[in-house]
Amino acid sequence: MTATARPSGSASSRTGVPRTPDASLERAELGSARRRPAGHRFRTRVLTPYAMLAPAILLFLAFMAAPIVYTVVLSFQRVQVQGLGLGSGARKTVFAGFSNYVAALDAEFLASVGRVLLYGLILVPTMLGLALLFALLLDSKRSRATRFSRLVIFLPYAVPGVIASLLWGFLYLPAVSPFYFVTDALGLDAPTILSSDLIVFGLANIGLWGGVGFNMVVIYTSLKAVPSDIYEAARLDGCSEIQIALRIKVPIVFPALVMTGLFSLIATLQVFAEPTTLRPLTNALSTTWSPLMKVYRDAFTRDDLGAAAATSVIIAIVTLTMSFVFLRIVQKRAFGQED
């Protein structure tokens, strides 16, 4: 979608755009030069863009850059206590070097990364597969009530993760769940989802329920951007609808799939709300089930901000690196023909 628009757009910015403002500026200078001194004009020209950018820059510094810098500072600090540690002045903050980082990479953290990777491995392919399937179905010529279906598939995305987890938590608890009520009535032995073996599927299911709709809309939108003459040509050549879907539509939406895949991957690494909400309901989730839960526990249960900050920095660096490498590899393949 953006790919087709880019070459022409960038060409015009390289050639056409700079010329026009220059010309208009020259005209404006001729008109205003008689009244205003040159220095004032220069100042206005240089300062105006900065003045206009200032709110955005200030907000970015205050709410993005400053917290990140502060987190990095905290990650090199730790609390040092003397003796019994009671009363005022018993604890002080000292420089910790890299000790928080060394301590952060413990077995607990690595285990939580492993669990989240498994979670992502279950969730992301299933979610993108279903999203692609729904998008193709909605885009096919014979589908009916597409607007209604699209809304219904998208609707769970509008439910906040915590609420979704509570809803599903009730459905997973045998004593209060209609699912188990039905399976009991039928005499079936339904598996306990809130057990240590199956909990990861239960969590992936919540993510799936909430995520399919959003990804479906992204893929569906890029399908809608495809000019219909391609399909007509394919039909003239004797393509069936399934062949059109597999050989034309899927390759065309591949860049969109890459994008949604990347976003989903980052989201799974940061899973927090779902396991945190389900944790009080079951013995199967520890307080360090996901990396971010460990950060939360260190910061707010153990009151160890240094460890929490160091783990956060590690997670941020890993996420950034993964996104960057992943994007570079896939970009070469997906957008290769355009460069």
Binding site: S196, A284, L285, S286, T287, R297, T301, R302, D303
Partner: peptide
Amino acid sequence: GPNVNVTFSAYNDEFSKAAE
């Protein structure tokens, strides 16, 4: 003691495993 929070969260994690 001064780190009841640590002990109590250790209870949650360790006894969750044991109860399972």
